[in-house]
Computed example of a mutant assay.
Amino acid sequence: MNEVAALAASPAGEDVLLPALEGVVRETFGARSTIAAIRRMTAKDQTSHACHVVTVRLGTREELTLFFKDYSSYKGRRPGMKERSERELRVYRDLLSGTDLGTARYYGSLWDQPQGFFGVLLELVPGTPVRYCEFPYWLSAAGWLGRMQGYFARHSTLLEKRDFLLRHDEHFFHSVAEKAARSVLERSPELARRLAPVLSEYDRVVKILASPFTTLVHGSYGAGQVLANSGVEPPRLCPIDWEFAGVGPALYDLGVLVDGFKTPRLDELLDTYRREATAHGVPVPDNDTMKLVIHCCRLHRVMHHLSRCMERNYPDTAVSSLMDMSDQLSKVVL
């Protein structure tokens, strides 16, 4: 038990982690199960927060390996980090738990307000981000969205009264555009004049994005936020990093995933999503309409980045590139 004692006595919230692990072990292996040793290592892939792989060895020599995301480790001044952390924890605990969608299993959370220690314990899911995988895994990621949306269409009450979720509605899309206008004006009055014609017609984009069919959205469903585990059959897809989760239009996440693709691969991605979504009872428009919505999603993401150009001190080249993208997309959707 020396390793356990050392863990309990060490700093950085370990005295909170140990009781949480004991609770996980009792729930997973039975009330009489005891911990013989604990090993904690820094995870290979880090996020905005410190992440650790925690291996618990029982007296029976069984082992349980967990992924520990330490929300309290973030030391920056970025606004909204506390809300983002709480949102992700509650998505895992309240929405994804028991869904059989392949997401990481939720084991528990740690919260010690006096110490300011806050984190979540999840299943350690082996896998490679889809962005580094062959194209078939991208297709699987598109299909996963259809299955996930079908699940929440069948269990729509799960999304009711979830105030921790962002609302991707008309107000949300307009607010991002308005923040972009202020940020660009602060950066350059000349660029603000260039952006003005796009913003004057932006209500059309908002109307297209604010679909009447809403579902759970990941909010940042890029290929770097989806793990693919090819070691099981069928391969397991596991979306991670749910800090921007919300309720919004079904095509929002798809628009993030397929950004940058062109025909014929774009059509393959859309067709794969359509098959899975339709099979699970999710209404899907025709491909031309889907492409229009996806272009609107891209324009919204451009506005999102422009809205942060001063806060993040983007270089002039990056802002110029974003303005060019805004001009190009506005010609398609406006």
Rank of each mutant, 00 (worst) to 15 (best):
N2K: 13
N2G: 08
V4D: 13
V4R: 14
E14C: 05
V16H: 06
P19A: 07
V25W: 07
V25H: 07
I38S: 05
T42F: 07
S48W: 07
S48L: 09
V53R: 13
V56W: 11
L66A: 14
L66P: 04
S72K: 14
S73I: 10
R78Y: 08
R78H: 08
P79A: 06
G80C: 07
K82G: 14
E83V: 04
E83S: 05
S85Y: 09
E86P: 00
E86C: 03
Y92P: 00
D94K: 09
L96H: 12
S97Q: 15
G98L: 12
D100L: 06
A104H: 12
Y106L: 15
Y107M: 08
S109F: 06
S109E: 06
W111D: 08
W111N: 06
W111K: 05
D112I: 02
P114I: 03
G116H: 10
G116M: 09
F118A: 13
G119P: 04
L122D: 11
E123V: 04
E123N: 12
V125P: 01
R131G: 01
R131N: 07
F135I: 00
A141Y: 03
A142W: 02
G143A: 14
W144S: 02
L145C: 05
Y151H: 08
H155P: 13
S156G: 04
S156N: 05
E160F: 06
K161C: 05
R162D: 01
D163M: 09
D163Y: 10
L166Y: 07
E170L: 08
F172R: 01
F173E: 00
F173R: 00
H174I: 07
H174A: 11
V176N: 03
A177C: 03
A180K: 03
S183T: 06
E186S: 14
S188T: 02
S188W: 05
L191G: 01
R193M: 10
R194T: 08
V198A: 15
S200G: 13
S200W: 14
Y202N: 15
K207L: 07
I208K: 06
I208A: 09
F213C: 11
T215Q: 04
S220K: 03
A223I: 00
G224H: 09
A228T: 06
S230R: 14
G231L: 14
P235L: 12
L237R: 03
C238K: 05
P239T: 10
D241H: 09
D241R: 08
F244A: 02
G246P: 01
L251P: 00
Y252N: 02
D253I: 01
L254W: 03
V258N: 06
G260W: 00
G260P: 08
G260R: 00
K262A: 12
T263K: 10
P264M: 11
R265V: 08
E268P: 03
L270F: 02
Y273W: 11
E276N: 05
H280R: 11
N287K: 09
T289D: 11
H295A: 10
C297T: 06
L299N: 01
R301N: 10
P315V: 14
T317P: 07
V319Q: 04
V319G: 04
M323A: 15
D324A: 14
D324Q: 15
M325R: 15
S326A: 15
L329Y: 14
L334W: 15
